[in-house]
Write a protein that binds this DNA or RNA. Structure first.
Length: 282
DNA sequence: GCGCAGGTAGAGT
DNA sequence: ACTCTACCTGCG
């Protein structure tokens, strides 16, 4: 049965997580309330404004305390101390310090592998608003309809099998454009058992990345996003146009990945969120 | 109208 | 190996 779960959490801000663009199924529902659909579950999150320090967050889900403990706690990576990552930043690197301070509430989510593969296939050469709409279209057309505790309809993410039945350009009706064949062909590869997703979860970063690159439409950037946001391989450091520009502007001699070995991806998110928030988009 | 948005595959040097 | 370009679609 549904119930509220309230927790004090450091380095957590749902708005920052939502705007950091890892999850395309998270949205602001109203003033201080966010919703997210993940692995078929629906959750609402809000800050406890009455609390003095701003560390208290409330989570509302169908399965209450048990679902929160068994699923959402890990999903939001709540057991990890992100202040420890930020503390590693070189004191003289004012750019990264500012970026990390600005996005200190970001968490690297642990999202579903299949959802991330499809989501980031769709993300290429595309903007956030349209990515969200594309994914929503695909879910509405090929996912499963469910009703949340507010009585509102939401849709689960379609299975590989559901998408594997389609013709290669059939997802163009969901506005995927040329990405349609990437998604359908990848779905066929997964549904046929040619590539086992469970196996990828157990691989090292290098192995997983290599395996993901075999999917039609998955290149280095998309593979790294999947490694970071689904497999929680924090060493993955996706380089997109924003990151590429930021790095050449602020790190002409290269970003010091060595210093942040094993959690480079966390730093990438601070930089991305900072750049993205200051580029007039959102 | 035209360039671009969290790239990638495929063809051509 | 490296460089170049087509690719859907919608929004400024």
């Amino acid at each position: 049965m549904k119930s509220w779960v309230t927790r004090k959490i450091d380095n957590f801000d749902i708005r920052q997580i939502c705007e950091s663009g890892q999850c395309f199924r998270m949205r602001q529902k109203d003033e201080n309330r966010y919703s997210v659909i993940a692995s078929g579950c629906y959750l609402e999150i809000m800050r406890e404004e009455k609390s003095e320090n701003k560390r208290e967050w409330s989570f509302l889900c169908e399965g209450g305390e048990e679902e929160f403990e068994s699923f959402w706690k890990e999903y939001f990576d709540l057991e990890t101390n992100y202040a420890a990552y930020i503390a590693q930043i070189h004191p003289k690197d004012t750019y990264l310090r500012d970026a990390a301070e600005f996005g200190a509430g970001i968490r690297i989510l642990k999202q579903d592998l299949w959802e991330m593969i499809v989501s980031f296939l769709i993300s290429q050469q595309n903007n956030i608003v349209r990515i969200r709409r594309c994914i929503q279209n695909v879910c509405e057309k090929y996912g499963e309809a469910r009703t949340n505790f507010c009585g509102e309809l939401y849709y689960t993410f379609p299975t590989p099998e559901a998408l594997a039945e389609l013709e290669e350009d059939e997802l163009k009706v969901c506005n995927l454009g040329y990405r349609s064949k990437y998604v359908v062909r990848t779905a066929k590869s997964v549904a046929s058992g040619e590539t086992e997703l469970d196996r990828i979860y157990k691989m090292s970063y290098r192995e997983a990345r290599e395996e993901l690159l075999k999917f039609y439409g998955v290149g280095g950037k998309v593979a790294d996003c999947i490694c970071l946001f689904a497999l929680h391989q924090l060493q993955a450091f996706p380089v997109d146009t924003h990151i590429s520009q930021a790095l050449s502007a602020h790190y002409p001699r290269g970003f010091p990945k060595r210093r942040y070995k094993g959690f480079e991806g966390v730093m990438q998110q601070y930089i991305f969120y900072w750049e993205f928030s200051h580029s007039g988009q959102s």
